[in-house]
Amino acid sequence: MMAKAIGLARGVLGSTAPNPAVGCVIAVGDSIIGRGATQPGGRPHAEVMALAEAGAAARGATAYVTLEPCAHHGCTPPCVDALIAAGVARVVVAHAHDPDPRVQGRGIARLRAAGILVETGLMEAEARAIVAGFAKRVTEGLPWVTLKLGVTLDGCIATKSGESRWITGPAARGVVQRMRAEHDGVLVGIGTVLADDPGLICGLEGLGDRPRWRVVADSHLRIPLASKLVRNAEAHPLILLATEAADATALQGTGITVLRCAADDAGRIDLRDALRRLGDLGLTSVLSEGGAHMAGALLRAGLVDRLAWHRAPTLLGDSGMPAIQGLGVERLADAFRLRLLTREAYEEDVLETYEVLLPRSGREILTGISS
């Protein structure tokens, strides 16, 4: 039952910001009588949806929920009140402590005070992974960042002339489409826009409205008005990260959101400030699909949570463009350390995901990106 609830939550990833993606199953014995997931934009909540489907049959039933039910009045009444009013006898919670400071154990306490049996910790690791972006935003003010790179076996993302389509095969590219759908926003630099004119939308059936935001680091607002991103901005929201000095006159009436970000002495965007501003807009997760300079800048700034390394069985040698540039590593002690999380094969390609650890030397981190 909890696996089904987690599946429901995973299915709405990328659509519920600023709220977390939550799944709920109401069951009597082995029979499911209600299913629910957080709805687009974050409400109604999963518990409310599941209880509505279950109706009066929820009395005496068990509710399986992926995250601690909310106990505060926001845009909607607390989910704990709905569970109590429905008369459920038992609530099983995977992730028992909602990181939102307005909840943090209060939901569990309210349920138990009402005489409901509460059990916690079932499939907790899986549930925590689903709300990692939400947790980072409410605790640090920053969205969760996944850096995606499609590389050759020797770590190149293109030839020196810039040719990169396609390093990985169709199966791996399908995985990337799913990754886009599961993140609130997809981020690239203006260099990628000028070189490739990407659309940055999910091509999977039924998910064409995701990601909800497309984001371009464009310090001086050089994006062409004829680009796909600008032409489709009304249907697929576009955010441009720019400095205060950038002239946005040409973009008036396009429906594009320009976020003014701090800049360094060289006029480069401060990516930490930029991501904080994205967090203020409600984004809980960002997939970076930018080039080598964007990858290096995000890593230097200590902003990458996960590295998704799509590796193809091809070699370019010194005729290739390195996947990551500008890290400034001169000693092994300064190397960025990774921890392997998963390894999966897709036809001939391999996807490895890593947790990104801090450089061991603790050296000063630079935050700018030239864009």
Rank of each mutant, 00 (worst) to 15 (best):
residue 188 V to F: 14
residue 166 W to R: 05
residue 180 R to M: 12
residue 208 G to F: 12
residue 194 L to H: 14
residue 187 L to C: 10
residue 199 G to C: 10
residue 195 A to F: 11
residue 210 R to G: 03
residue 151 V to G: 00
residue 202 C to E: 02
residue 208 G to E: 15
residue 195 A to P: 03
residue 200 L to G: 00
residue 168 T to L: 05
residue 194 L to A: 14
residue 157 I to N: 09
residue 180 R to Y: 06
residue 156 C to V: 00
residue 201 I to M: 07
residue 183 H to L: 02
residue 186 V to C: 13
residue 204 L to T: 01
residue 159 T to Y: 06
residue 205 E to P: 01
residue 195 A to L: 12
residue 209 D to E: 15
residue 191 G to I: 02
residue 198 P to N: 12
residue 201 I to Y: 13
residue 166 W to M: 02
residue 151 V to T: 15
residue 169 G to N: 02
residue 191 G to P: 06
residue 152 T to I: 12
residue 168 T to Y: 05
residue 208 G to S: 14
residue 207 L to N: 01
residue 181 A to S: 14
residue 195 A to M: 10
residue 200 L to W: 08
residue 193 V to T: 04
residue 167 I to Y: 02
residue 161 S to C: 05
residue 182 E to F: 01
residue 202 C to T: 07
residue 204 L to G: 00
residue 189 G to K: 12
residue 177 Q to M: 12
residue 194 L to T: 07
residue 182 E to G: 01
residue 177 Q to D: 13
residue 178 R to S: 13
residue 172 A to L: 10
residue 158 A to S: 15
residue 206 G to I: 02
residue 186 V to L: 10
residue 192 T to M: 07
residue 209 D to K: 09
residue 162 G to D: 04
residue 184 D to C: 04
residue 181 A to G: 08
residue 157 I to Y: 06
residue 154 D to M: 04
residue 174 G to S: 12
residue 199 G to N: 11
residue 185 G to V: 08
residue 160 K to S: 03
residue 206 G to D: 04
residue 166 W to K: 03
residue 181 A to I: 04
residue 182 E to T: 12
residue 210 R to C: 07
residue 159 T to D: 03
residue 159 T to E: 08
residue 153 L to A: 15
residue 152 T to A: 03
residue 201 I to F: 11
residue 172 A to R: 04
residue 198 P to G: 05
residue 202 C to D: 02
residue 199 G to H: 15
residue 178 R to Y: 05
residue 166 W to Q: 03
residue 161 S to A: 15
residue 176 V to Q: 09
residue 194 L to E: 12
residue 191 G to D: 10
residue 191 G to K: 09
residue 174 G to T: 14
residue 177 Q to W: 01
residue 161 S to K: 14
residue 157 I to V: 15
residue 183 H to I: 07
residue 188 V to W: 14
residue 194 L to F: 10
residue 178 R to W: 10
residue 166 W to Y: 10
residue 184 D to G: 11
residue 202 C to F: 06
residue 200 L to S: 01
residue 181 A to D: 06
residue 175 V to Q: 14
residue 182 E to I: 00
residue 167 I to E: 02
residue 187 L to K: 14
residue 202 C to P: 02
residue 207 L to W: 11
residue 179 M to L: 15
residue 173 R to M: 11
residue 208 G to N: 14
residue 177 Q to V: 00
residue 176 V to C: 13
residue 182 E to P: 00
residue 201 I to E: 05
residue 159 T to Q: 03
residue 163 E to P: 00
